[in-house]
């Protein structure tokens, strides 16, 4: 199927344009419809950081160096994952108009929606770099290793796409997956090394850096952007494999359940 999509892509080259068009419109719909506009995309992570900073650094005294940046990179990656999964559980319902009247490939709907989230993440990442290099005190400047964020992001994108496919296709036959996922998602949030000190996380929850597919991505992203070292390759390959297997499951479900979306939803 993946090879089919790629050859199709080369043959009808308007696909890349279409994905970008859909992503831009989706992005505009999300942020330009309210008064604060794009500013909101930037304020939200800052507010989250302020909250967790007060709880974990001021009250609980975790003593993580450069904790605001530590939170920043963890939260923007986590937010991308949540927006791309919780935000897309009902995608086959909300984007019905795209596939109900034509034989458009449904996978394009997912890819473009996640692309629109990528635009948001891109702005957030730029903010992170500014914050880390110029505002946070006592940190070294970013190094060339920061570029490792690209393969790590691709890993995160595949993982989010896979989860989105699995959830939204289950939604076709079980509507309350929305609630189930919300509970699971907050569970996953507290079992990810977003605001814990890494040593404590590894000691108290052994194997969770491997079990939780998003934990490794966050750990490696910090290595690349803050510690200025290459990522832990064992962990990276593991997470990539994790994401690809989930993606195959997602595509299987799309063919099995998603093809019936037009008649069931």
């Amino acid at each position: 199927m993946i090879i089919g999509i790629l050859t199709d892509w080369v043959r009808r080259s308007n696909k890349a344009e279409r994905l970008w068009l859909l992503a831009k419109i989706e992005f505009k719909l999300r942020y330009y419809e309210n008064k604060l506009g794009l500013l909101w995309a930037l304020i939200k992570p800052l507010m989250d950081i302020a909250i967790y900073y007060i709880v974990f650094q001021t009250i609980m005294k975790q003593n993580v160096p450069a904790f605001a940046s530590y939170l920043f990179i963890g939260l923007i990656l986590w937010n991308f994952f949540v927006e791309s999964t919780t935000g897309t559980v009902q995608i086959l319902n909300t984007k019905k108009y795209l596939y109900e009247y034509s034989n458009m490939n449904k996978l394009e709907i997912y890819v473009s929606t996640l692309l629109s989230n990528t635009i948001g993440l891109f702005f957030n990442f730029i903010m992170f770099l500014i914050f880390y290099n110029f505002i946070e005190r006592g940190t070294a400047f970013s190094t060339i290793h920061t570029l490792w964020i690209l393969p790590l992001f691709i890993n995160l994108y595949i993982l989010s796409l896979a989860s989105s496919l699995i959830l939204s296709n289950i939604y076709v036959i079980a509507k309350d997956i929305t609630q189930v996922w919300q509970v699971f998602c907050s569970f996953l949030f507290f079992l990810s090394p977003i605001f814990y000190k890494l040593d404590i996380f590894k000691a108290r929850l052994p194997k969770f850096d491997y079990l939780n597919p998003i934990a490794g991505i966050i750990i490696n992203a910090r290595k690349a952007t803050m510690e200025g070292t290459a990522p832990d390759f064992g962990l990276f390959v593991w997470d990539l494999g994790y994401a690809v297997i989930l993606l195959l499951l997602g595509i299987f479900l799309l063919n099995k359940l998603g093809s019936k979306a037009a008649e069931k939803l």
């Binding site: 308007n14 344009e17 279409r18 068009l21 859909l22 419109i25 719909l29 019905k96 108009y97 795209l98 596939y99 109900e100 009247y101 034509s102 034989n103 458009m104």
Partner: peptide, 27 residues
């Protein structure tokens, strides 16, 4: 490519006419 037309084609009510033209024609 196929297009099925009955009383409407796939258009989103949240989008403007301009955006709908671009999205539909692109699809």
């Amino acid at each position: 490519t196929t297009l099925l037309m009955n009383l409407g084609v796939g258009m989103s009510h949240e989008l403007t006419a301009r955006e709908n033209i671009y999205v539909s024609a692109s699809v």
